[in-house]
Design a protein around this nucleic acid. Sequence first.
DNA 1: ACGTCTTTATGAATGATTCAAAACAACTGA
DNA 2: TCAGTTGTTTTGAATCATTCATAAAGACGT
Lengths: 161, 161
Amino acid sequence: MESNEAGSMLRDAGLRVTAPRLAALEALGDHSHATVDEVYERVATGLPGTSLQAMYVVLAALTGAGLVRRIEPAGSAARYELRIGDNHHHVVCSLCGAVEDVDCVVGEAPCLMPSHTSGYLVQTAEVTFWGLCPACRALETGDDAVASVPAAAPHDQPVRS
Amino acid sequence: MESNEAGSMLRDAGLRVTAPRLAALEALGDHSHATVDEVYERVATGLPGTSLQAMYVVLAALTGAGLVRRIEPAGSAARYELRIGDNHHHVVCSLCGAVEDVDCVVGEAPCLMPSHTSGYLVQTAEVTFWGLCPACRALETGDDAVASVPAAAPHDQPVRS
DNA sequence: ACGTCTTTATGAATGATTCAAAACAACTGA
DNA sequence: TCAGTTGTTTTGAATCATTCATAAAGACGT
């Protein structure tokens, strides 16, 4: 028996092993940070008869079971990824919306302990970096037209807070 | 002439001074982290005939001009705040969605310089802390029922990355 | 193989946000 | 002060991502 990893991942998480779920996991393995729609399209090629709504349900189940992480960058649809439990953050391009992993962070990361939390019991921290992806950078410098920012999400917070 | 601060803020930003804009700024001054809908309701009381869509336009203009910051916590509608340019982050309650400011961060914040950025030109960093607000904390401990989490957004990233 | 309970398929509904065109009002110069 | 120009708001409808409801299908334990 080969490539049964995904199957046991599901079983271990208390979920039944179904074709749509296996396909979704595989799709995310190939193409991380995919939107529901992207996962659906990939799954649908090898598994006709699948519906977009099914993918919503599947991904919600996988997320709930902790097999998949859901990120939701401002101004874009939700995206899913397989890498979980390894403390990484994201860079997203403010022009095209591309997302990459960032293997954060140096040492103890004192700045991720907020100074005072207004009585909140802080459980998790989420860091998103915004900037220009290599492709969009090239465009900006190539045609040095002042490239009006095509609206992704407003950011006014300088790096290194 | 008094209380013309907002007026000159607008003018200085190259925007015309209009009643809806002044009202929106005032509403945000009273109640930060408000959704478009909340701003609209507050504005509508003193300025009947205002429409929700107008608030969308107004807030977009203010955001574009840098007078207002838009935040978009996963799982909730966009929220707006007046505090800008002062490098602060947010704690949001994963149960009720309440948002508070966090006057981050200690010193140089080395962790907000990602180790390698895959060629991205990083411009801004955004930090969101997730946890339980005082009220929801009380509920959790009060009735020690295992309080099923009412779904706000999935988080699996431990604090101090 | 059987029955039960989870999961998927299908279709419709909701909520937040945006678009388009026409009415309106703020600033400019006369 | 007045009219023109142009930026804003109004109104109504459309779009997108996501969720809900019901019934059919499938996975797993016996």
